[in-house]
C-alpha cells in the first residue's frame, strides 16, 4: 500500500486568506409533529474555507445529516422549523426562497448520497441525466451537454465511458453507480459539495476507490466539501477539519489530526476507544455506556452527562459552549472552561 504522508500538508490552506465560503451561525432545526417536537439541531455554528474538506462525524440521530440538508434547504417546510444564519458564497441560504434555492442546488452546491438511486433517475440513461443538468444550469446546447457528460465520466474514472453514457443506472454495478452520481453532482463545477455518507453502503475494496477519487477530485477542482459520516476512519482519510456532533450540537471541532489523535471531548475519546481494532483481542472494549438521548425531550445541561465518565456539577448547570483547547481546536465540555 502506498501512503502519502504529505497529504495533510499538500492542500493549500486558503482558510487564512479571505472570507470563508460557508458560514453557519446558530443553526437550529426542529421537526414538529402533532405529538412531539424533535430538536434535531440545537445551535450549530461553523465556517468553511474554499477548497476545504469538513467532516461532520456523529452517530445516527446526532443531527449531522440534518445540518447538511438544512444548508440545501431540503427539509419539507411544513414540518420543519429552521432558525439561524446560513451563507454559501454570496448566497444567504437562510433568506432564500424555494425558487432561488432551485437555481443554487446542483450548480453552486451539489449533493451526493449514500444510495445513488436517490439522485439517479432509473428511467433515464446516465448520459441524458448529466447532459440535462448541464443544459439546465449552463444554458448550453445539448451537444455541449453530452460532451461535458463524457468528460465527467472520464473524470470520475468510469471505464469505457462512451458505452456507459448510454447505460441505465440499474445496469451499473454499485461502485460505478456511485461514480455516476458523483459525475452528476460535479456537472456544473460546484464550489461546495455536500456528501452524505457516500461510501457507507459500499464494500471495503470499492469504498477506498471512491474515497481516493473524491479526494483527488476535490483537490483538482478546488471544491469545498462537507462530508457527513459516522466512520472515524473515513474522516481520517478525507478530512481537513472535523466537527464531532452529539445530540444536535458540535461538541468538538479542529483539524483532523488534532481531533483524531488528541481528542479532547469525552465523547470523542469514547468513540475512538470503542472503535474496534484487532489488537484489542480478548479485551473488553471501553464502550460508552447507554445510548444517545431522545431528542424530543429537552435536556438541561450537557446532553452527554448520562454517558460521561467525568461529570462535574457544572456539567448539569448549562450547555457548555465551544472553547479553545488549543489554537484552532475547540471542545464543548465543562472540563475546559
Amino acid at each position: 500500500m502506498v501512503y502519502d504522508t504529505h497529504a495533510l500538508a499538500a492542500p493549500p490552506s486558503p482558510a487564512s486568506t479571505g472570507t470563508p465560503l460557508v458560514e453557519v451561525r446558530d443553526l437550529s432545526v426542529e421537526f414538529v409533529s402533532r405529538e412531539s417536537t424533535t430538536r434535531a439541531v440545537n445551535g450549530v455554528s461553523f465556517s468553511l474555507a474554499p477548497g476545504e474538506v469538513l467532516c461532520i462525524i456523529g452517530e445516527s440521530g446526532s443531527g449531522k445529516s440534518v445540518t447538511m440538508r438544512a444548508l440545501m434547504k431540503l427539509h419539507p417546510a411544513k414540518h420543519t422549523r429552521i432558525s439561524g444564519y446560513m451563507r454559501v458564497a454570496d448566497h444567504e441560504v437562510s433568506a432564500h426562497s424555494e425558487r432561488e434555492m432551485r437555481d443554487i442546488r446542483g450548480s453552486h452546491i451539489s449533493m451526493i448520497f449514500q444510495e445513488p438511486m436517490t439522485s439517479l433517475d432509473p428511467v433515464y440513461r446516465i448520459g441524458d441525466q448529466i447532459a440535462e443538468t448541464v443544459v439546465h444550469h449552463k444554458k448550453c446546447s445539448r451537444a455541449d451537454g453530452y460532451a461535458r457528460a463524457l468528460e465527467l465520466l472520464k473524470l470520475v474514472g468510469v471505464p469505457s465511458p462512451e458505452r456507459r453514457l448510454k447505460a441505465y443506472p440499474h445496469e451499473l454495478s454499485g461502485g460505478l453507480r456511485q461514480r455516476a452520481m458523483i459525475a452528476v453532482a460535479l456537472s456544473c463545477s460546484p464550489t461546495l459539495l455536500l456528501a452524505d455518507e457516500p461510501t457507507t453502503a459500499l464494500d471495503a475494496t470499492v469504498q477506498i476507490q471512491v474515497l481516493v477519487l473524491l479526494r483527488r477530485l476535490q483537490q483538482e477542482l478546488g471544491m469545498a466539501v462537507i462530508f457527513v459520516t459516522h466512520d472515524l476512519s473515513v474522516a481520517a482519510q478525507i478530512a481537513d477539519k472535523v466537527a464531532v456532533m452529539y445530540a444536535g450540537r458540535i461538541v468538538e471541532y479542529g483539524s483532523v489530526a488534532d481531533v483524531l489523535q488528541h481528542p479532547a471531548h469525552p465523547y470523542t475519546q469514547g468513540m475512538l476507544a470503542s472503535t474496534v481494532s484487532g489488537h484489542m483481542r480478548g479485551q473488553i472494549i471501553e464502550a460508552i455506556p447507554g445510548s444517545p438521548p431522545d431528542m424530543r425531550v429537552r435536556i438541561e445541561g450537557c446532553s452527554f452527562v448520562p454517558r460521561c465518565k467525568s461529570v462535574k456539577p457544572a456539567c448539569r448547570r448549562g450547555t457548555p459552549a465551544l472553547v479553545d483547547v488549543l489554537q484552532g481546536h475547540q471542545a464543548a465540555c465543562a472540563n475546559f472552561v
Binding site: I284, E286, A287, P289, G290, S291, P293, D294, V297, P306, R307, K309
Partner: peptide, 17 residues
C-alpha cells in the same frame, strides 16, 4: 470503565424518563 457499568448495560440512563 468499571465492571459495574458493564453489567449495567441497560441502554437507558437512569435519569431518563
Amino acid at each position: 470503565m468499571s465492571v459495574a457499568s458493564l453489567s449495567d448495560l441497560s441502554a437507558a440512563p437512569p435519569t431518563e424518563k
